[in-house]
Design a protein around this nucleic acid. Structure first.
Ligand code: MN
Ligand code: MN
Ligand code: MN
Ligand code: MN
Lengths: 220, 220
DNA sequence: AAAAATTTTTAGATTAACTTAAAAATATGT
DNA sequence: ACATATTTTTAAGTTAATCTAAAAATTTTT
C-alpha cells in the first residue's frame, strides 16, 4: 500500500492537532490546518480510514492508528533532520528552512534518512529546538517552560520557540536571542506583562509579553 | 505559472529523447520513456504546448521551447547535484542514488540548488561521469569515446558509463573499473569483439563486447 | 426543551493524470 | 500505387483531490 504526498500531510496535520489539544482532531481543525474545506477533509478522512491509518466516526473527529502515527512521526523526523541539514551544512538561517523541509520530508528512502541522521551526528533537536523523534517515533522530552512562566530571579538557556513565524525568528536574531542564550528574569511588570531580563550575564533587555510567551527556557 | 512534478518529468523525457536522436521526440518515444500510453502523452503534450513549454504539431512530434529546455536542464542539474551529494557526503554507492535523485530533483527552491552546488565544491560531473549543467543550462563538453571505439595501443581514463543500470554499475565495482581508472587496449578479438586491456598499468583483464560498448574513456 | 448557531456531512461538479478502444494519419513493402 | 503495418490522435471513462452549496447532526444559548 502506498501513500500519497497529500495523505501524508493530512496524517501530520492530525498528529499535530491531537498533540496540541489532547483529543481527536475535528474536521474543522483539519481543514484549517490543511487550508482546504471541511468537505475535502471528510472525503480524505474516509479514504484514510479505509486504509486503517486513522480511526474515524462521523461527527466524532479522528485519531491516528498505530500505523498512521508511525507515518506521521516519521514525517516529522524527516522534516526536522532536513532542517538541521539546511542550517548546519548549507548555512541557511532558521527562518528560511521550514518551507524547503516541507518538501524534503516527503522523499521516500529507508536508507536516506538513517544516513542523513548519521551524517548530522544524530541530532536530538532541530534548529528551532523541536525534538527529533528517533526511528521508532520516540521524542526526547525536555523540562522547559515559557519565559513568561518564570518568576523573578529564575533563569535558564533558551531552548525553543512556540511561535515559528519568520517574523519572530528574525526578531530573535536581531535581539541576539538565539538558542543557547541564557536568560534571567530580573523584573516583571504587571502593567503590560513585560519583563526585564539579563542575557548571557552580560546585558539587560526589556522583552514584551508576546516575546515572553513564545520563548521556551530550559527548567532547573 | 507553476508546473507539476509530472509535467517536469515529461519535459526531462523530451529533452533526453531529443538529445539522443537529434530530432523531435515522437509520441511513442515519450510514452516509452514515461511508462505511460501514447494517449496520455498526446493529452499532456497539448497541455505543455498551451503553457508554451514545447512546440507541438499533430503527428510531427515535439521539441522544447527555450522555457521548456530551461526547466529540463535545471532538473538535470538538480538530479546530478543530488547524486553527488548522496555519494560524496552520505557515502551511497553509485548504483543506489538514481532513484532517490529522481525524487530530490523536484524540490523547488532557488537558493537550495546554489547552496548545494557550493557545498559540493561546484562539481562538473556526477558520480556516473555525466556532466552537470551550470545555472544557465550549459553542459561541460569532454572529448570521450566508447572503449569499443579505441584501437590497440590506445588508452585513457574511464570517465563515464553509457549503460546506467545497477547491474552494470555493480559489475564495474566488482572489476574495480571505477571512474578514473586508466584502461589501455592491449588486444582486440574480432571473434567476439572482446578486448584484453591493461588496467592502471598494473593488471590485465578481458572485457566483453557489451562492457566495452558501455564504458566511456577520455580521448587524447 | 426549543431555538439559534455551529459543525459536519452529502451531493454534485471540476481538474489533472491516467486508461482502453476505436478512428485517423502517416510510413512501408511489394 | 496500393495494401498493410505502424504511429498518433480522438473519444469516452476512471480516480484522486479538490471545490461550492445544501442538508443533516451536534452544540450552545435562551
Ligand atoms: Mn519546520
Ligand atoms: Mn523546525
Ligand atoms: Mn541518475
Ligand atoms: Mn547520474
Amino acid at each position: 500500500m502506498d501513500i500519497s504526498h497529500t495523505e501524508e500531510n493530512y496524517l501530520k496535520a492530525i498528529f499535530k492537532i491531537s498533540e496540541r489539544n489532547g483529543k481527536p482532531a475535528s474536521t474543522n481543525a483539519i481543514s484549517n490546518e490543511m487550508n482546504t474545506t471541511a468537505a475535502s477533509v471528510t472525503d480524505m478522512v474516509k479514504r484514510l480510514s479505509d486504509k486503517t491509518l486513522i480511526h474515524y466516526e462521523r461527527y466524532r473527529g479522528v485519531t491516528l492508528t498505530g500505523q498512521g502515527e508511525q507515518i506521521a512521526t516519521h514525517l516529522i523526523r524527516k522534516h526536522r533532520l532536513w532542517e538541521v541539514f539546511l542550517v548546519d551544512k548549507l548555512h541557511f538561517s532558521w527562518d528560511e528552512v521550514h518551507e524547503i523541509a516541507e518538501q524534503l520530508e516527503h522523499i521516500k528512502s529507508k536508507r536516506l534518512v538513517e544516513r542523513l541522521d548519521e551524517y548530522l551526528g544524530f541530532p536530538k533537536f532541530d534548529p528551532h529546538g523541536d525534538p527529533i523523534p528517533d526511528a521508532d517515533g520516540n521524542f526526547t522530552i525536555r523540562k522547559q517552560a515559557l519565559l513568561s512562566e518564570l518568576k523573578t530571579g529564575e533563569q535558564g538557556p533558551v531552548v525553543g520557540v512556540h511561535d515559528h513565524t519568520t517574523a519572530f525568528l528574525q526578531y530573535l536574531d536581531r535581539m541576539e536571542l538565539v538558542l543557547g542564550t541564557t536568560v534571567k528574569v530580573l523584573e516583571y511588570f504587571e502593567y503590560d506583562e513585560s519583563m526585564r531580563v539579563l542575557i548571557n550575564n552580560e546585558r539587560e533587555q526589556l522583552l514584551s509579553k508576546k516575546v515572553c510567551q513564545n520563548l521556551f527556557v530550559q527548567k532547573q
